[in-house]
Design a protein around this nucleic acid. Structure first.
Length: 567
RNA sequence: CGGGGUGUAGCGCAGCCUGGUAGCGCGCUUGCUUUGGGAGCAAGAUGUCGAGAGUUCGAAUCCCUCCACCCCGACCA
């Protein structure tokens, strides 16, 4: 490739709307351009990266025995009614009508469509198992698209679906895809971690997420450095504190705490650690009305866990709190009131604690279970987020926290969709059975953002060689002026290409500084400079994107050298 | 959906408070010089000041409505 025929669209400044480093760099390097909120054009330079990611994913999926197909982006809404997922997916599902007033959606995912395909095509246990996948543009009408392609509304996804005659066979495929995903992210040269995950709206049991580790990630991951335990914080279990509840040593006392509505305020007022304060969170349950959730002051509510314990709920409005407890928010507590109590495990083991007095401007100190309030009707459960230092659920050490960008997700869907859509087969005994299903997703476009989030410096992107838009850039000093330079650069391009190396020759009439800056911004991993100075000694100049120094190499050796480097 | 913020040239921004000729830097065009780390000089082009309605002799500036975008939260892969 020659730069003069390609399209390079670098910019010195990123648009103000770009917040995180990968978004800024993708804009500056001319990889993407925004068309509308969360909707981007992949410019030629960016498309090369996207295609390289796609190729690795495709090769590994094929290797795992999955078969590629391509389903329509536009789907009839009836399928979503049939699966029962239409209402649940809600406004994120982009719906529209055709000229005959029939309802359609733009597919955010394809469980319904693939299940429809398989129920029509596959009738016998002899045709199972099957695994189909596609790499396709999806649309999800996100409430708040952000971070460029990391959370776009339109995005490229690899989605695969497997069908089985037994759960055991689904488990086998699930383990196999776990290995496949590990291979994919290893080949992409990303720092990643597989974590146990909540199954979310898609349902089913058994699920792992693959996260690229990055501080800007939207997900919190809990992991144990001393074992292989790792889970999304949404799911990670907070164990019961060890030891028994300490005996009461203080009487319960009401103290004035005017204006102190936050746990932190109370803690500093009383010179107590935050761990001695209990906060009460008021919620309205879909079934059963008002309830109080009790958490230690330094802990945060985990809504996913809480929902599993108490059912659907929302936070109570201020008026609802006043109505139920005759006290305004900020001073509410569990003592002397009738609301249903859901108590976090850690709170159940506390003694001599501080909580709201259900009287404006007052809190209670020295509160103890049994003596001051009953635990008999309370539900004790794990409803908080784990924090660093908590015991690992596998008992092998303590948890650490880090942040991740979810780039892959594998689910055991079991029979959820097969049942709803009557996707059945005839088994060896001639009996009709519902198929077991798995599904496996990779956010192809998100990977590009995640890779840049992980690989960048003050000069720009540092792409892993596997997905860089070009493997090598040839930068001549005076291509259009000096015949010897031109000849050497042209020959090098030919040599590299004949060895299957993806090289670009920057034959633009730019100044050296601009060319260097452009290619460092774009993140091409290898650079060869062709200059008159070196040519006099028959040498060219090599520099890796992260190298601090250049190497002078004999012209004759450079193609082999590059081949060795790139592998 | 709630709270906050921003919309002025392709990009980054000033001007707005206190109404009166629409500006700066980068980029772009042309010429000359320059040519190993984002060149210099000179000349030039580019605007529905987000949209609509209003106040006013006069609106980028004041008022109202709407739209878009960003951040925080809620929500969600």
């Amino acid at each position: 490739m020659r730069a003069s025929r390609f399209f390079i669209a670098t910019q010195k400044e990123a648009p103000a709307e770009a917040e995180i480093v990968s978004h800024k760099l993708m804009m500056r390097a001319g990889l993407i351009r925004r068309l509308a909120g969360g909707i981007y054009t992949w410019m030629p330079m960016g498309l090369r990266v996207l295609r390289k990611v796609e190729t690795i994913v495709r090769e590994e999926m094929n290797r795992a025995g999955a078969v590629e197909l391509l389903m329509p982006a536009v789907q009839p809404f009836e399928l979503w009614e049939e699966s029962g997922r239409g209402p649940k997916y809600g406004p994120e599902l982009l719906r529209f009508k055709d000229r005959h007033q029939r309802d359609f959606v733009i597919g955010p995912t394809h469980e319904e469509v693939i299940t429809d395909v398989v129920r029509r095509e596959v009738k016998s246990y002899k045709q199972l198992p099957r695994h189909f996948y596609q790499i396709q543009t999806k649309f999800r009408d996100e409430i708040r698209p952000r971070f460029g392609v990391m959370r776009g509304r339109e995005f490229l996804m690899k989605d695969g679906y497997s069908f089985h005659s037994s759960y055991a066979d689904l488990e086998r495929e699930y383990r196999s895809l776990y290995e496949t995903y590990t291979r994919i992210f290893t080949r992409l040269d990303l720092k990643f971690r597989a974590v146990a995950a909540d199954t979310g709206s898609i349902g089913g049991t058994g699920s792992h997420e693959f996260h690229v580790l990055a501080d800007s990630g939207e997900d919190a991951i809990a992991y144990c450095p001393d074992s292989d335990y790792a889970a999304n914080v949404e799911l990670a279990e907070a164990l019961e504190p060890t030891g028994a509840c300490a005996a009461a040593t203080q009487p319960m006392q009401k103290i004035a705490t005017p204006g102190k509505t936050k746990c932190e305020d109370i803690a500093s007022l009383l010179s107590l650690p935050l761990q001695r304060i209990v906060k009460a969170i008021a919620v309205m349950r879909s079934e059963g009305g008002f309830a109080l959730l009790l958490l230690r002051g330094d802990h945060d509510l985990n809504e996913v866990k809480a929902q599993k314990v108490i059912g659907e709920f929302r936070f109570a409005k201020d008026e609802e709190v006043e109505q139920a407890l005759h006290c305004r928010p900020g001073y509410i507590g569990p003592v002397n009131q009738q609301a249903a109590l859901f108590v976090d495990r850690s709170v159940a083991k506390m003694s001599d604690f501080v909580c709201g007095a259900n009287e404006a401007g007052h809190h209670l100190t020295g509160v103890n279970w049994d003596r001051d309030l009953s635990m008999t009707t309370a539900v004790i459960a794990d409803i908080r987020n784990v924090v660093a230092g908590d015991r690992s659920p596998d008992g092998k050490g303590c948890l650490e926290l880090c942040r991740g960008i979810e780039v892959g997700h594998i689910f055991q869907l079991r029979t959820k969709y097969a049942e709803a859509l009557k996707c059945q087969f005839i088994d060896e005994q001639g009996k009709e059975q519902v198929m077991e299903m798995g599904c496996y997703g990779i956010g192809v476009s998100r990977i590009v953002g995640a890779a840049i989030e992980q690989g960048n410096d003050d000069r720009g992107i540092v792409f892993p060689a596997a997905i860089a838009p070009f493997e090598v850039v040839i930068v001549p000093m005076g291509y259009n002026k000096i015949d010897a330079v031109r000849a050497a650069a042209d020959k090098l391009l030919e040599d590299l290409q004949s060895r299957g190396i993806d090289a670009i020759l920057d034959d633009r009439d730019e100044r050296p500084g601009s060319m260097f800056a452009d290619w460092e911004l774009i993140g091409v991993p290898h650079r060869v400079v062709v200059g008159e100075r070196g040519l006099k000694e028959g040498k060219l100049e090599y520099k890796g994107r992260l190298d601090s120094d250049v190497q002078m190499l004999p012209m004759a050796d450079i193609a082999d050298f590059m081949k060795l480097r790139i592998g």
